[in-house]
Simulated scan of single mutants.
Amino acid sequence: MNELRFEQVSVRFGGRRGMTAVDGVNLVVPQGQVVGLVGESGSGKSTLARAAAGLTPVSAGRILFNGEPLRHRRGEPKPLQMVFQDPHSSLDPRMSIGDSIAEAVPRSGRSTAAGRAAEVQRLLGLVGLDPQRAFSYPGQMSGGQLQRVALARALAARPQLIVADEITSALDVSVQGTVLNLVRELQREMRLSMLFISHNLAVVRYVADSIAVMYLGRIVEQGPSEQILGDPQHPYTKDLLAAVPNQNNPGLQPAAVEPALSAVTDAEPADPHHPPLGCRYHLRCPIGPLVLPGRDICKEADPSAEGRRHAAACHFSDELLLSGREGLL
């Protein structure tokens, strides 16, 4: 059972007067499934990923793998590997591609230089690269090729779960589809569990079995991908969907789809160092107190997700009107 579980996980920087980047997150990545984690820059997605990889300490809560606390001890096999956004910075420019991948291959009593070289050749072929690329250096390869190398390097460690953090955002649009196809094929073939992080719902919908939406350090909605995309229950999720070009009319703007959105388009995102009281999204919400009178509860009380569809943390999620949602699927 390769299940990753976050239980009330919080990550805080700077002591008491610092910033809480992740605040009480509950999230499960089931065995053999891809969970898409989406949200704007600064929402806490990458911090949560780094906490899972042991790169950022957890301030509260716990992270479990197969029901046991996830530990990252030097010299021990790691069940989780992370693929970063920028492959140029995650690969040593002074090491050949083959040496970078071989470095991640687990050492054992029977491990030999020839065996590791053969494994490097196999992994390069697995990610669709010429095995002769083992003798190349990062500076001789494109961004898309390097991201394939980063995937091969992660797979070299024989992980049970992959955390992919914005792995297509630094690539040209023409290359993104190729990398996404590769990710989906590898995940299905190897039955890997995966936490796939992106700010782009159009990317996440292509690979994810379920989706969790994050805003200012909290999960505000989560559920099966088809349900989240077809019937979002939180205004922020709907706002993210409105930003995706409509397939039937790519030129359609969100304000034309839903006039209420225009009332809050000028609102700045809340300061993550000082998040607002109540619902953290109320300053930008199209069905919140800035648009509709009599909804002061949004400014006063933190909404509970319990008992609501998709665990949507919104006081008025049941009243959210979804005009034109058919064009989003």
Rank of each mutant, 00 (worst) to 15 (best):
residue 1 M to N: 07
residue 2 N to F: 03
residue 3 E to T: 15
residue 10 S to P: 10
residue 10 S to A: 15
residue 16 R to L: 13
residue 18 G to D: 10
residue 22 V to L: 09
residue 25 V to F: 04
residue 28 V to A: 15
residue 31 Q to D: 12
residue 34 V to D: 02
residue 34 V to Q: 02
residue 34 V to H: 00
residue 35 V to Q: 01
residue 35 V to F: 03
residue 36 G to D: 12
residue 42 G to L: 03
residue 43 S to V: 00
residue 45 K to C: 00
residue 46 S to W: 01
residue 46 S to L: 02
residue 49 A to N: 01
residue 50 R to D: 02
residue 51 A to Q: 07
residue 53 A to T: 03
residue 56 T to V: 11
residue 59 S to D: 09
residue 63 I to Y: 06
residue 64 L to M: 14
residue 64 L to Y: 10
residue 65 F to S: 06
residue 65 F to D: 03
residue 67 G to Q: 04
residue 71 R to A: 15
residue 72 H to G: 15
residue 74 R to V: 15
residue 75 G to R: 08
residue 77 P to W: 00
residue 80 L to T: 05
residue 83 V to F: 03
residue 83 V to G: 05
residue 85 Q to N: 07
residue 88 H to G: 06
residue 89 S to C: 11
residue 90 S to M: 05
residue 97 I to N: 13
residue 97 I to D: 11
residue 103 E to I: 01
residue 104 A to P: 05
residue 108 S to K: 02
residue 108 S to N: 04
residue 109 G to A: 09
residue 116 R to D: 01
residue 117 A to C: 00
residue 119 E to W: 01
residue 121 Q to R: 14
residue 123 L to R: 01
residue 124 L to A: 09
residue 125 G to M: 00
residue 126 L to K: 11
residue 127 V to D: 12
residue 128 G to L: 06
residue 130 D to W: 05
residue 134 A to T: 02
residue 135 F to W: 06
residue 147 Q to F: 14
residue 148 R to C: 14
residue 148 R to P: 11
residue 148 R to I: 07
residue 149 V to W: 13
residue 149 V to T: 10
residue 153 R to L: 06
residue 156 A to R: 06
residue 157 A to E: 03
residue 167 I to M: 13
residue 168 T to S: 12
residue 171 L to G: 02
residue 171 L to I: 05
residue 172 D to H: 08
residue 176 Q to K: 05
residue 178 T to Y: 01
residue 183 V to I: 15
residue 184 R to T: 05
residue 184 R to E: 04
residue 185 E to K: 02
residue 186 L to H: 00
residue 188 R to N: 07
residue 194 M to S: 01
residue 196 F to I: 02
residue 199 H to N: 10
residue 202 A to M: 12
residue 202 A to Q: 14
residue 204 V to L: 04
residue 204 V to A: 14
residue 209 D to F: 00
residue 217 G to Q: 08
residue 217 G to M: 06
residue 218 R to I: 10
residue 219 I to S: 11
residue 222 Q to C: 11
residue 224 P to T: 08
residue 224 P to E: 09
residue 227 Q to G: 04
residue 230 G to N: 07
residue 231 D to M: 01
residue 232 P to W: 04
residue 238 K to P: 01
residue 242 A to V: 01
residue 245 P to R: 04
residue 247 Q to F: 14
residue 249 N to F: 05
residue 251 G to Y: 10
residue 251 G to E: 13
residue 254 P to Y: 13
residue 254 P to H: 11
residue 254 P to T: 10
residue 254 P to W: 13
residue 255 A to Y: 12
residue 257 V to Y: 00
residue 258 E to T: 11
residue 261 L to H: 13
residue 263 A to L: 12
residue 264 V to Q: 15
residue 264 V to Y: 13
residue 268 E to S: 13
residue 269 P to D: 08
residue 270 A to I: 13
residue 272 P to S: 12
residue 275 P to W: 04
residue 277 L to I: 07
residue 281 Y to C: 14
residue 283 L to I: 12
residue 285 C to F: 13
residue 287 I to F: 05
residue 290 L to A: 15
residue 291 V to T: 13
residue 292 L to G: 08
residue 293 P to W: 06
residue 294 G to K: 07
residue 295 R to D: 08
residue 299 K to W: 02
residue 300 E to Q: 15
residue 302 D to C: 13
residue 306 E to K: 09
residue 307 G to I: 05
residue 308 R to N: 11
residue 310 H to L: 12
residue 311 A to Q: 10
residue 311 A to F: 09
residue 312 A to Q: 08
residue 317 S to K: 07
residue 319 E to S: 15
residue 323 S to P: 10
residue 329 L to K: 04
